[in-house]
């Protein structure tokens, strides 16, 4: 589903964020993207989300060659992905319902569809009771769950999670992890960037390791085919 072929990314200052990265992820896989801060994890996710363009190399997501992608299609492509951030990026000027509804409004969904999907998404992450609350009044774990609800409300097939447990304690991290696993079981492909070694030890999924912008072959796993350790797909997601 996701293929990187000799991809490099160099920012305008000349600093190389990624160098010669090649890998391939299968549809429905759950993959950890690991590495220390500054290793290039966020840059790699931004490339997949088409928020950055590679300096060289080829990226293919779901059969779409990014080099041939027209700007209008880029937006449509991004709407088909779910993105979760470390700082959840919820908007404090509106309640939780409206935060989660934003991707659907952007996507031009109808009112009934929005109400149904947002209610279901909040229910799924256990925040239905907090629909009318402002994000800043929620705990860190709840905010992150709300971020997950927003990322998944449009039922994307691909979820990019950029250190979603970075600010959370071990219990909350596990809570978030279980939630992501639920979605993964319903068929969502997950690429989870983290440097939380405890989390990595508890959940043995395929890892794509980055160090200094370069791919480091993970122990026991090939970085060109990371389809192993998938959890079997269940029925379609309810979110």
């Amino acid at each position: 589903m996701i293929t990187f072929d000799s991809v490099s990314l160099r920012y305008s200052g000349g600093k190389a964020a990624l160098e010669n990265i090649s890998f391939s992820l299968e549809t429905g896989s759950f993959t950890f993207l690991t590495g220390h801060s500054g290793a290039g994890k966020s840059s790699l996710l931004r490339l997949i989300a088409r928020l950055e363009r590679p300096t060289s190399g080829r990226i293919d997501v779901g059969g779409i060659d990014y080099s041939r992608l027209k700007p209008r299609r880029e937006l449509a492509l991004r709407r088909q992905m779910g993105v979760i951030f470390q700082d959840n990026q919820l908007l404090n000027d509106r309640n939780l319902f409206d935060n989660v509804a934003l991707p659907l409004i952007i996507g031009g969904y109808g009112y009934n569809d929005i109400v149904t999907r947002v209610s279901a998404a909040l229910h799924r992450v256990g925040l239905e009771h907090a629909a009318d609350m402002q994000p800043e009044t929620l705990s860190g774990g709840e905010q992150q769950r709300a971020g997950i609800a927003r990322a998944l409300v449009a039922r994307p097939r691909l979820l990019l999670a950029d250190e979603p447990t970075g600010n959370l304690d071990a219990a909350m991290s596990e809570d978030i992890m279980q939630l992501l696993l639920q979605f993964h079981r319903s068929g969502v492909t997950v690429l989870f960037a983290t440097h939380d070694t405890e989390l990595l030890a508890r959940h043995r999924f395929a890892q794509l390791k980055l160090a200094g912008g370069r791919s480091v072959s993970p122990r026991g796993l090939s970085d060109t085919s990371l389809a192993q350790h998938q959890i079997p797909r269940r029925s379609e997601s309810h979110v």
């Binding site: 909040l122 009771h129 009044t137």
Partner: peptide, 17 residues
């Protein structure tokens, strides 16, 4: 992170929605 509002936390999901 501020504490959640107790009143709303006890609200029923339907009411909150």
């Amino acid at each position: 992170m501020s504490e959640p509002r107790a009143g709303h936390r006890n609200a029923s999901p339907h009411t909150a929605l």
